[in-house]
Design a protein around this nucleic acid. Structure first.
Lengths: 253, 253
DNA sequence: CTTGAACATGCAGATTCAGGCATAAACGTG
DNA sequence: CACGTTTATGCCTGAATCTGCATGTTCAAG
């Protein structure tokens, strides 16, 4: 047997998380088993409550028309490769702050299994993703939950972050403009992000290439607050010059 | 004997760490012992909690069958009906505290879509489940994440809860004994649960019928702290008498 | 309504598994 | 050393699991 049954089913759940849906035919091809086996897998995963079976494939259990999970489907491979590149920046023993957002959630999944570190996050999905890593201490920053972004905000969150001096903070940025700096759309989130940046020795911005050169309504911090930028390889070479000029180390994924 | 038993088992765990899985057949070939011996090894390593036995081989224990998701599969219909019954106790405008655990997560899903209330929880999964309810304000209580239970604990969580005066708190109890009271297995969780109870006008305990009459090592609160008990209909009628005698309103789901 | 794809069900072959039993080595004790 | 006990291992048998195939049914797009 090339692949264990449970292994195959985990892989199906991975694909489901990745793409937001799976087709029985695709799985048959990728996993090289008969359609019957795939159907059985999907049926039993449904019985176990791990997914929702539909004709032709399967969907995530909780209907999930949520903005969060639909956003996760945008440019998943770019986000994933950025996440992998960024994950390599973390070293054992560090205190790491993880922002919310789909890219940082990918980063959480991409962290090496063996990593020993302390992770602080405002994002419940990130916290859950890291819960079963034996080497990690996960701290959730409390506050009011922003439904769209699934991050905590408010005075409680800012207070909790203010006392933390992190080695590195990973920031999922909505816009990163050479002159305007780090920007976001939400005023409450701005204060939380600013508090994360304040105490951190290193600030790593994670941004798809199409976030570069754009700006959102609320300014979080000047560009000089960022020490590293991780983006995908599809970016124009010239577009990176202003960031390098600002002393930012640019990593291409 | 070419290789000691424990030596062989360490090697199996090494292979598992290396490849993320092991096949019984491969181990038989590599270690030159009978399949029976390998099976015995895998079984005992599973009993010792070092790996997860599956048909044909073994997988890492925390691969994806987290204790949380496996617990969710135990008596799901009882949990769901308890959750539905309890959800009917919540009224518009209330401040509600939701404990962690699989039953309270079901309760979160069972809350009416139209409910307008403020929900406070230590459980990231509960927070996510409620995020897209337009009528709810969800507050996450920050703290250190307990990997097994997926709840936050620690001084930060207790502090945050101390200032809250909730109308009702829903407590997922591990054990509810007529004389010993509400008990749990974890000392940190005990302090968080106690803080939840302290400021609450009403304390609703959610418990499968098989939790009644049992006690865990750590006492959270005396039975008198509980004002309502929701359990499933499979409970012996006689078993409920001591709770009713203590002035607790018992709801059968 | 038609039709092809997807589906559930039952079945068979192959593999894997659990428990009982026998053997042999290692161990402890007098 | 002699003896009984424990442990580890391999073999055996019946049971369980997994997978693919055949059958008839259901679904959904045209």
């Amino acid at each position: 047997m090339a692949m264990l049954t449970d292994e195959r089913r985990s892989l199906i759940l991975d694909r489901l998380r990745e793409h937001g849906r799976v087709l029985a035919a695709d799985l048959t091809a990728e996993l090289e088993v008969s359609p019957d086996t795939i159907r059985r897998d999907l049926r039993e995963l449904d019985d176990a409550g791990r997914l929702r079976r539909v004709h032709g494939g399967a969907l995530p259990r909780h209907g999930d028309a949520s903005p969060f999970s639909s956003r996760a489907r945008r440019a998943p491979e770019a986000k994933a490769s950025i996440a992998r590149r960024a994950a390599a920046c973390v070293r054992d023993g560090q205190v790491v702050i993880l922002d919310g957002g789909t890219t940082t959630l990918e980063l959480a999944h991409a962290l090496p299994d063996t990593l020993r570190a302390s992770v602080i996050t405002t994002s419940p999905p990130v916290a859950i993703a890291l819960a079963d890593r034996p080497g990690l201490t996960v701290t959730v920053v409390g506050g009011t939950l922003r439904p769209h972004a699934l991050v905590t905000v408010g005075a409680a969150a800012v207070d909790a972050l203010r006392v933390i001096r992190a080695d590195v903070v990973f920031l999922g940025v909505c816009g990163l403009h050479p002159e305007i700096g780090v920007t976001t759309a939400d005023l409450e989130e701005r204060h939380v992000k600013a508090a994360m940046i304040d105490g951190a020795a290193e600030v790593v911005a994670l941004a798809d290439h199409d976030k570069l050169g754009t700006a959102m309504p609320v300014v979080v911090a000047p560009l000089t607050a960022v020490t590293r930028l991780v983006t995908d390889a599809e970016v124009d070479a010239g577009a990176l010059a202003p960031y390098r000029a600002a002393g930012i180390e640019v990593l291409l994924a």
